Amino acid sequence: MKATFQVPSITCNHCVDKIEKFVGEIEGVSFIDVSVEKKSVVVEFDAPATQDLIKEALLDAGQEVV
């Protein structure tokens, strides 16, 4: 499964690193693409990962998800 999250609070590479760390810890996540320019995060994943778990990880990383 693939999901795109709009994350307007992404401003720098530190944000990218933190997002990759938090989302990458979720079992089932196979790909993460964070774009500072587009302020988006694209995640490819399989169970047990879910969109809700990914959104929670983004929030835990200090990001706003819309």
Rank of each mutant, 00 (worst) to 15 (best):
E27I: 11
E56A: 14
P48E: 02
F22Y: 12
V43R: 00
E27R: 09
Q63S: 05
D46C: 10
K21D: 04
E44N: 08
V66D: 07
A3R: 01
G62E: 07
P8C: 09
F31Y: 12
A61G: 03
V7W: 06
V41P: 01
V16F: 05
G62T: 11
D46E: 12
V65S: 05
E64Y: 11
K38F: 14
S40F: 11
D52F: 08
E44F: 15
K39L: 07
V16N: 04
D60A: 15
L58F: 04
V29E: 00
I26S: 02
C15H: 12
V23T: 01
V23Y: 04
F22V: 12
T50D: 04
T4F: 15
I54D: 02
I54T: 02
M1D: 07
L53K: 13
I54L: 04
A57L: 04
E20S: 11
E37P: 06
S40C: 13
K18R: 11
E20A: 11
H14S: 15
F5M: 05
N13C: 14
V29Q: 02
A57S: 04
D52V: 09
S35V: 06
I32V: 11
K18M: 11
D52S: 10
I26R: 00
G62Q: 07
V43H: 01
L58R: 01
K39T: 05
K18I: 12
V66H: 08
D52T: 09
T11R: 13
M1W: 06
T4V: 13
V42K: 07
E44T: 12
S35R: 05
A3Q: 07
E37K: 09
P8Q: 09
V41T: 01
D46R: 11
G24Q: 07
V65W: 08
E25K: 15
V29G: 01
D46T: 12
F5H: 04
V65L: 08
V36C: 15
E44V: 13
K21Y: 09
Q51Y: 15
A49Q: 03
F31V: 07
F5K: 00
V43D: 02
L58E: 03
A61L: 08
G24C: 09
S9R: 00
P48C: 01
D17M: 11
Q6R: 10
C15E: 12
Q6M: 12
D52C: 11
V29S: 00
D33M: 12
K18V: 11
A3W: 08
T50F: 03
C15P: 06
Q6W: 15
C15Y: 10
V29D: 01
A3I: 14
P48F: 03
L59H: 09
I19V: 06
A61M: 08
A61D: 01
V16H: 05
C12R: 08
I54A: 01
C15D: 15
P8Y: 07
I32K: 00
V65E: 05
H14P: 05
V43C: 03
C15A: 12
V36F: 08
E27H: 07
H14F: 13
F22T: 08
V16S: 06
A61C: 14
V66R: 09
D33V: 11
E64K: 11
V36A: 04
E44W: 15
L59W: 08
K38A: 10
D17V: 15
P48Q: 01
C12E: 11
V41A: 00
M1P: 05
S30H: 12
K55Q: 08
E20T: 14
V41Q: 02
F22H: 11
S40N: 07
T4H: 13
V65Q: 06
I32Q: 01
D33N: 10
N13T: 13
A57W: 00
L58I: 14
E27W: 06
A47W: 14
I19G: 02
E64W: 11
K18S: 07
V41I: 09
L53M: 12
D52M: 11
L53F: 05
D46V: 13
K39I: 04
G62S: 06
C12W: 07
E56N: 13
E44P: 02
S30I: 13
K55A: 08
C12P: 08
K38Y: 10
I32T: 03
N13G: 14
S9V: 05
V16G: 04
E64H: 10
E20C: 10
E25F: 08
I10N: 02
K55P: 02
C12V: 08
V36D: 02
D52G: 08
I26T: 03
V66M: 08
L58H: 02
V66Q: 09
A61E: 02
G28M: 00
P48W: 00
N13P: 12
G62C: 15
S35T: 03
S9H: 07
T11E: 10
D60W: 10
L59F: 09
M1L: 09
E27G: 05
F31T: 08
V36I: 14
N13V: 15
A47R: 09
T4D: 07
E27V: 12
K55W: 14
D60H: 13
F22N: 05
K2M: 08
S9F: 11
K39F: 05
V34K: 01
V29I: 06
V41D: 01
F22K: 09
E37M: 06
G24V: 05
V36H: 04
E37W: 05
L59C: 06
I10V: 07
I26K: 00
T4K: 08
F5Q: 04
H14K: 15
N13D: 11
K2H: 07
K18T: 09
G24N: 07
A61V: 04
V34P: 03
V7A: 01
K21L: 08
K21A: 08
D46F: 13
G24I: 05
T50C: 04
S35P: 01
V65M: 08
K39A: 06
Q51I: 15
A3S: 08
G28A: 03
E25N: 12
L53R: 13
A57C: 03
D60Q: 14
I10A: 04
D46N: 13
S9W: 14
K18C: 07
G28L: 03
V42R: 08
K39P: 01
K21G: 05
D46K: 12
T50N: 06
D52N: 08
V66E: 09
T4M: 09
D33P: 03
F5C: 07
L53H: 06
V34C: 12
A49T: 03
K21T: 06
L53V: 07
D17A: 14
D60N: 14
A47T: 07
V43I: 06
D60M: 14
D33W: 13
H14V: 15
T11C: 14
I54F: 03
E56T: 12
A3T: 07
I19T: 01
D46A: 12
I32D: 02
D46Y: 12
A47K: 10
T50V: 03
S9T: 13
V29M: 01
E25P: 05
E64T: 15
K39M: 09
E25C: 07
I54E: 03
Q51S: 11
E44C: 15
I54R: 00
S35N: 12
A57F: 00
P8I: 11
A47M: 08
A49F: 01
I26D: 01
T4C: 13
V29K: 00
A47V: 08
F5L: 05
E20K: 15
